[in-house]
């Protein structure tokens, strides 16, 4: 991956998602500028994962526009979204547990638009996540949670995405491991990959990201910047306020 910032942004406008009669996301508009790292925080059931799923084409959007750079990707099937340049690291990681780490990584390259630079990308993710190299022959399901998370992010990066969607990367991980994941994120940002991150640990996210959106009951409630990281009162109010 070149260090040149030919980064591509992601824009969501007026997104609405419903499961049957229940509207889970309503009139959601958010913007991730090229190369930015933006977080989406909120309580359980706020609609964060659903938002990522809708961007990825995993759940149909009832209304709204989704743009990758200046290309509309609303209504695309997931495989087409992936090939357009968005990669998702889902909550719970979803490695293929019976396959080896190597095979999982190989599947990560399916969505690449070109095989140019694959070797460099591979070297880069191995540097970023040594576990990927050390355990390449092991069954993915046998790895620890932290190692699995590393493989999952590495797999996503090997698609050389313009935009990386990360769902709860710190969930269930030891503090030390969380730290290493965020260190990796710093590197990923430096490479010019645009990141939209869903995170339960709001303090962590707000301090780290360029901007943090707070979601509640399917709507965006608040936009915070790193300087708000200490303002717990505002965060709590946005989480639980009406």
């Amino acid at each position: 991956m070149s260090e040149v910032a030919t980064a591509v942004g992601l824009a969501v406008e007026g997104l609405e998602v419903a499961y049957g009669p229940v509207t889970v996301v309503r009139d959601l508009t958010l913007n991730v500028e090229p190369g930015e790292v933006v977080a989406l925080v909120g309580a359980n059931g706020a609609g964060k994962t659903t938002t990522l799923s809708a961007i990825m084409g995993l759940v149909p959007a009832k209304a709204g526009a989704i743009r990758l750079g200046d290309r509309s990707i609303a209504g695309f099937r997931p495989e087409r979204v992936a090939r357009a340049g968005i990669a998702l690291v889902p909550e719970g990681r979803h490695l293929f547990p019976a396959m080896t780490v190597e095979e999982n990584l190989k599947l990560g390259t399916i969505g690449r638009r070109s095989d140019d630079g694959l070797a460099e990308d591979r070297a880069w993710v191995e540097e970023l996540f040594p576990a990927v190299r050390d355990f390449s022959g092991r069954r993915a399901g046998d790895l620890s949670g932290g190692q699995q998370q590393q493989v999952a992010i590495a797999r996503a990066l090997l698609a050389r995405p313009d935009v990386l969607l990360l769902d709860e990367p710190s969930l269930g991980l030891a503090p030390k491991t969380v730290e290493s994941v965020f260190e990796a994120l710093t590197e990923i940002r430096r490479r010019g990959v645009t990141v939209l991150l869903v995170e339960q640990r709001a303090q962590l996210a707000i301090g780290f990201c360029d901007r943090t959106y707070v979601m509640a009951a399917g709507e965006l409630r608040l936009t915070l910047t790193p300087k708000d990281a200490g303002d717990s009162a505002r965060i709590v109010a946005a989480y639980f306020g009406s």
Partner: peptide, 9 residues
């Protein structure tokens, strides 16, 4: 017959 609504985070 309606598929159970997926739970969202």
């Amino acid at each position: 017959a309606a598929p159970a609504a997926e739970t969202s985070a």
